[in-house]
Nucleic acid binder design. Structure first.
Lengths: 133, 133
DNA sequence: TCAAGTCCGACCATCCAAGTCGCAGATTAG
DNA sequence: CTAATCTGCGACTTGGATGGTCGGACTTGA
């Protein structure tokens, strides 16, 4: 099943905060953690992933901090989840290159319904943007 | 965020299998595990939870096994998730009895959007029944 | 220049779910 | 009655996620 971890929560909270900032302003990891009760030492790590993904820009030095690099209306929840929780392998059967063999196993026939469920959940996450939160 | 564990997967697969059974038939934990590649020793535990929840009936002894106790069209995915993954505390702020104080914290104001997201996901799970899988 | 404040990366500790093992209780086949 | 087979229940091990610590690099302001 799709795995939605806590890091996704932190990331969404932080992104939402950055999205509500005036143009040019930025927030440091410490400020984000204090204001929104995120784990002090985990916040920089979450932000770092968002930076390397190109969703957030970071400026170093005193007066440094993070600011959103893209339009909040263009950022989907699914994208954030993918960045922070890793790629969601919806069909674990397809590990390796033996897809043909896999499809004949009895187990996979009953697992396809789970894919339907996953698709439905992912559809919600794909549809919802940061601006809509 | 909502936590969807692997046990929910196993439970749904097993329930789906039981739902497709002729009236009066049953499947043992070993059979379920072998046919659908579920962990051998974990399957009885998952089923036990479903039994105590009244969703599945178990008969002991030789020739024993599990059979569905309710109509598949009346079992929602959300209910299965609640049974196997525990109650989803959508608002972790409400721990303790100081709800009034909590609502004044700055962090909770930004967390309410996450509730919207949770509600959207839960809505999908509430809507989808076992029969629809 | 210097000091303060920030991001960045690697490493270690802790916690919890996943999975395993073993034994007791219950029921049926022979 | 006996043996086989199943569920039921607890304790144990393990692996991944979570959270914390430390040192290094960079930028700003005095």
């Amino acid at each position: 099943m799709i795995r939605l971890s806590r890091k996704a929560d932190y990331g969404l909270v932080a992104l939402k905060a950055l999205g509500g900032l005036p143009e040019g302003d930025s927030l440091s990891a410490r400020e984000l953690a204090e204001r929104f009760h995120l784990p002090q030492d985990l916040t920089p790590k979450v932000m770092a992933k968002l930076v390397t993904a190109g969703m957030v820009e970071a400026s170093m030095g005193k007066m440094g901090g993070y600011r959103l690099a893209r339009d909040p209306a263009d950022i989907t929840v699914a994208e954030v989840v993918r960045i922070l929780d890793g790629e969601q392998h919806i069909a674990p059967c397809q590990q390796g290159d033996l897809m043909g063999e896999c499809s004949r196993l009895e187990g996979c026939e009953i697992k396809s319904p789970l894919d339907t469920l996953n698709a439905a959940v992912m559809n919600v996450l794909e549809t919802m943007t940061l601006a809509q939160l």
